[in-house]
Design a protein around this nucleic acid. Structure first.
Lengths: 192, 192
DNA sequence: GTCTATACCACGATAGAC
DNA sequence: GTCTATCGTGGTATAGAC
């Protein structure tokens, strides 16, 4: 994109993607209309179609945004020297975000779950993002010397997804706190 | 309901509820239309409204159906003498159902997750059903002499919900098999 | 109780003026 | 590149004949 185009857009594209991520998360993909996203981004409804020809393209952009957020979270965990410290750092982040989990669940898990029932090919793109998290966790468990790193990585991510669903269902942030502590103890117990 | 009314209905109400449970599970609540359910139940579209005045009432009936299924699953576990045997029996059932989990996720978890973003009050009804499962699990862990039965019950259900989401996202039944085995070993390790 | 026809509305998407 | 007006589709729900 040239400078002039970037200036002309005034960051509308970015605003639309941010709004899409937020509104999809809060209302669900299926319930969200293009008008909802336009309003949240403060962009006239008809103008959305200049940037995204279909709702599916907006969903795709939202998945890409989640991928970048995950990359940043994983990169930030690098300041911890040990793999167990990095695994626990992500857990601490999840616990810190518990109030929004109470309201809407896991930002990516709920999206992934919904896309699976949508029929278009977007579920594959969502799976690739989830794969990045699982593979990262597997590398951490492997660095801890665990031969069953693959299985542990799945259990780690599943525990987070599951407790997010229950935290949301029961509207109880305490569930995330208790399970986060339990998972951290579990990781400590695996250190050889 | 009198006999004559039951006869006149020819079980249409029951067929509609069964169809609703199935189609909501496979397509998601939001994507499913009244016409979809009518077709699946082999009932004329307009006739649905004689039994259920709104889509919400159909959802409510579907939640009730899930509650009855859960009651039956829990009752069936009673043939196992030990609490750990009962907890493992449910896990075995989840593993046995892995192929449908690969396609559509956990029948009740996906519903609960979706209802939470719907705005109406149905999420509360879903939470009550989930509560039945958690409370049952808590009683089993308590019978095993665990003081932290409440926390373990949450972890148990969360593990199932989480692995269901990942099994569905990655379309890999093997994930459910491996995690089921891991959870069973975990429960054995808790037996005093 | 059963079913058809249809009212009514909301949504995704487009056409075209500016 | 921006925005309005609108088209077409498909959904919930109802009216009313049978």
């Amino acid at each position: 994109m040239t400078d002039s185009q970037a200036k002309a857009g005034s960051g509308k594209r970015e605003r639309l993607v941010e709004a899409a991520v937020r509104v999809f998360y809060q209302q669900g993909v299926e319930k969200t209309t293009i008008a909802d996203i336009a309003r949240a981004a403060d962009v006239p409804v008809g103008n959305v179609y200049y940037y995204f020809k279909t709702k599916d393209q907006l969903i795709e952009a939202a998945i890409g945004s989640h991928a970048r957020i995950l990359d940043a979270v994983i990169a930030a965990s690098d300041r911890h020297e040990t793999p167990s410290g990095r695994l626990k750092a992500l857990i601490a982040g999840w616990v810190a975000d518990r109030e929004q989990t109470v309201r809407y669940g896991c930002p990516f898990g709920t999206l992934s779950s919904e896309l699976d029932k949508r029929g278009d090919g977007l579920d594959t793109a969502a799976a690739e993002v989830m794969r990045v998290l699982v593979d990262w966790a597997e590398r951490q468990f492997a660095a801890m010397g665990r031969a069953d790193a693959k299985e542990l990585a799945i259990a780690y991510v599943a525990a987070y997804q599951g407790i997010s669903l229950l935290t949301n269902t029961f509207r109880d942030p305490g569930l995330m706190v208790a399970e986060g502590a339990r998972l951290s103890r579990w990781i400590d117990s695996l250190v050889s």
